[in-house]
C-alpha cells in the first residue's frame, strides 16, 4: 500500500520561503500533476520528499514512515537537471542503478531503451537533450518503486520526445503506485492526470480531480492554470 502524506510542510531559505504550510494527501493508483510556474516550489517539494532537502517544519510520511534514508527505498525521483555522470555510458548508469536499488528492473529498462532507440554504448555527455530526458524518465520508471517523482520531464524536449516520454509514463502506471509529475507545460500532459495540484508561491492554491475541474468550470486544466497564473 503506497501512501504519501504531507502535513503542514514549510521550507524556508535564508531570503525566501519556498513552501508555505503545504498539506497534501496522495493516494495510490493515481497520477498527480504538480503545476505552477518556475519558482512556485514544485522542485523544492519533490526534493524534500526525495530526501535531498530538509524541511524547516512540518512532516512527510511515506508509507507511514518519517523521512529518512530508508524512505528513499520507496521513492524514485527524477531531477529536472542532468544529474547523470557525464563520463558514464548508458549501460554504466543502468549497472549503477542495478547495484544501488534492489527494485531496479534491468530488463525492463533495456526493453524501454531499445524501443526509444537509445543505445547502451552512448556516452552521457554526448546525448542530446531529448535523449537525456528520455533516458532519465526510463531510469526513474524502471525502478519498481511506490512513489515516482518526475520533475519537469517534458522540459526542453521536442514534440516527438514528449510523446515518447508520456507513453513511457502511461505504460508505467500501476494501481499500487503514486506518480507525481511536475510541469508548467499543462496542455501537453493534462490528459494523463487524475488530480492536479496548483502551487502558487509555495502554497497550495488548488488540489482537485482533473475531470471534476473540467466539468465544473467547463474549461481545460490549462485554461484554469492560465487564469490562476497568467500567461507565463
Amino acid at each position: 500500500m503506497s501512501r504519501l502524506i504531507i502535513n503542514e510542510l514549510t521550507k524556508k531559505y535564508y531570503n525566501k520561503i519556498a513552501l508555505r504550510n503545504v498539506s497534501l494527501n496522495f493516494e495510490q493508483g493515481k497520477i498527480y500533476g504538480l503545476l505552477g510556474p518556475n519558482g512556485s516550489g514544485k522542485t523544492t517539494l519533490m526534493k524534500v520528499v526525495a530526501g535531498l532537502h530538509k524541511q524547516t517544519s512540518g512532516h512527510v510520511l511515506i508509507n507511514d514512515q518519517d523521512l529518512s534514508y530508508k524512505t528513499k527505498t520507496y521513492v524514485s525521483y527524477m531531477p529536472t537537471e542532468n544529474y547523470l555522470y557525464p563520463s558514464f555510458k548508458v549501460v554504466d548508469i543502468l549497472k549503477f542503478y542495478k547495484d544501488m536499488y534492489k527494485d531496479f528492473r534491468y530488463e525492463y529498462a533495456l526493453d524501454l531503451l531499445n524501443s526509444i532507440n537509445v543505445k547502451l554504448d552512448y556516452k552521457i555527455s554526448n546525448l542530446s537533450s531529448g535523449e537525456t530526458a528520455k533516458l532519465k524518465t526510463v531510469i526513474a520508471l524502471s525502478r519498481d518503486a511506490d512513489i515516482y517523482l518526475l520533475d519537469e520531464p517534458l522540459n526542453g524536449v521536442d514534440v516527438l520526445a514528449r510523446d515518447t516520454i508520456m507513453d513511457i509514463i502511461t505504460k508505467s502506471y500501476g494501481e499500487n503506485k503514486i506518480i507525481i509529475i511536475s510541469t508548467h507545460l499543462v496542455s501537453e500532459i493534462e490528459k494523463l492526470l487524475d488530480t492536479v495540484v496548483f502551487l502558487k508561491e509555495g502554497a497550495v492554491e488548488l488540489f482537485c480531480d482533473a475531470e471534476e475541474l473540467r466539468q465544473e468550470r467547463q474549461m481545460s486544466v490549462e485554461g484554469i492554470y492560465k487564469e490562476v497564473f497568467g500567461n507565463d
Binding site: A50, G51, L52, S68, Y69, K70, K72, T73, Y77, P79, E81, N82, Y83, L84, Y85, P86, F96, M100, Y101
Partner: peptide
C-alpha cells in the same frame, strides 16, 4: 554538483 544526486538519492545512510 547535480551529479551528487546520483549518490544521495540512493537509500544509504549519511
Amino acid at each position: 554538483k547535480k551529479t551528487g544526486y546520483m549518490l544521495f538519492m540512493t537509500p544509504n545512510s549519511g
